[in-house]
Nucleic acid binder design. Sequence first.
DNA 1: CGGACCGGGCGTGTATACACAATTAGCGCG
DNA 2: CGCGCTAATTGTGTATACACGCCCGGTCCG
Lengths: 243, 243
Amino acid sequence: MKQSLKALLTLREWILSGTLTADERLWEPALAKRLEVSRTPLREALVRLEGEGLIIAAPEGGYQVRAFDRAYLQGAIEVRGTLEGLAARRAAEARPSAAALKPLHVTLDALDRVVAQHALDSDDFDAYMTFNERFHDAILRLAGSQPLEEALARIVSLPFASPSAFVMAQSLLPRSHEILFIAQDQHRCLVEAIAAGQGARAEQIAREHAQIARRNLDVALGDHAMLERVSGAPLIRACLGAV
Amino acid sequence: MKQSLKALLTLREWILSGTLTADERLWEPALAKRLEVSRTPLREALVRLEGEGLIIAAPEGGYQVRAFDRAYLQGAIEVRGTLEGLAARRAAEARPSAAALKPLHVTLDALDRVVAQHALDSDDFDAYMTFNERFHDAILRLAGSQPLEEALARIVSLPFASPSAFVMAQSLLPRSHEILFIAQDQHRCLVEAIAAGQGARAEQIAREHAQIARRNLDVALGDHAMLERVSGAPLIRACLGAV
DNA sequence: CGGACCGGGCGTGTATACACAATTAGCGCG
DNA sequence: CGCGCTAATTGTGTATACACGCCCGGTCCG
């Protein structure tokens, strides 16, 4: 594996896991040593991470880990919802054939099987996450817009903005199963709208669907145990009174 | 000035102006020599340009200038329109005070003065472009969403996706003045909707406003003289029979 | 005469060395 | 004893040298 890729992946993991804390200054010589990489590929990784928005360039040079506040997370989820709304509308307006809709139905059924169980354990929520992401991806592909794909990829690269960012956190809630039912119903309506060519409806459903994440975020920001299950949670500033 | 910044700016200009042609392979040693920069800052600039989407990494290593087709441009404009729609809605829903709306009105008046003239020369279209961008920026700031700002900045970094990308091209059309009237009326309605807290209306207007760019794009793709006035036009693939 | 193997040049990826700026600590002077 | 200045250390930014892989061309052998 290329050293620059190793540096990029490791740094991303360290940032999201909290090994590198929010606002922490990133000293290249020290980091290079810890990563067992020379400064050249490390700097390449840093430039990429800046592009992803996980770190920011300090005015006096160098980088530091970025910290996000509640408003940023809400805004990011809103942007994702809006772009997924656009994707859903475009998918609907493309009037996809039954064959093109096949992967959507397959994933929908898989999600159904997960949700239909009586009790859900951690693995089930994990499976839900996987299929959920596949579902969102399938719609995006139906939209057939490369710029849209790129814009969404950018937003989702912020871990807490991804469609299934709060699924694991949500699993701690007493009514978690109920939430999945609701989300899955939205999935079903979304497919129905897309299949029927109802662009405006599909867009609205996709937007409202993203609001589930925002509601989960609001709950998680007040619940330490939930927040621990969210990737990138250590980057969230002032979310709880104490850590 | 830092060498990496010099490399970034110069490369961007070379790509947009067609000095480096679409699909052209970027050889680091040769480029470094032309830029009078060593390979280290050059590579940093290349990574940044890849993040901007102006170049792509070749699978066998190295980069090449990216080429865009008509569908991509349309999609990019659509994404911009959608995000600007979100910005407009958020601006409206924030119920900005009269003071907060001031810069919007000021810019609107400046645009009015440009459009109200009897005949417009190239400088007038230039002035229009400046105020137009300021106007779009002002709405974005009213929205008060950092993730949204970042997402829009990304899209707009593609030159032909920016709000005023086709203004200069449009100036060649016989009905160009008329188009500005229409665009300016949309600006006015947009401010009115935002001031009145009409979020849904503001969103729709902003979206439809972006369609002007898409319509100009369609015309420009069939008109060599118009296309010459669009920044980044050399990156557009198969737009005309011959160049 | 053709195919395969070997060598050289070229290009990317990485490491390291150097230049310059900033900050800090220590020392000297007031 | 305190303040200021200088010197050293540290970190970023840049240049260059090295390593490895790839492709191409030439040559030698079958």
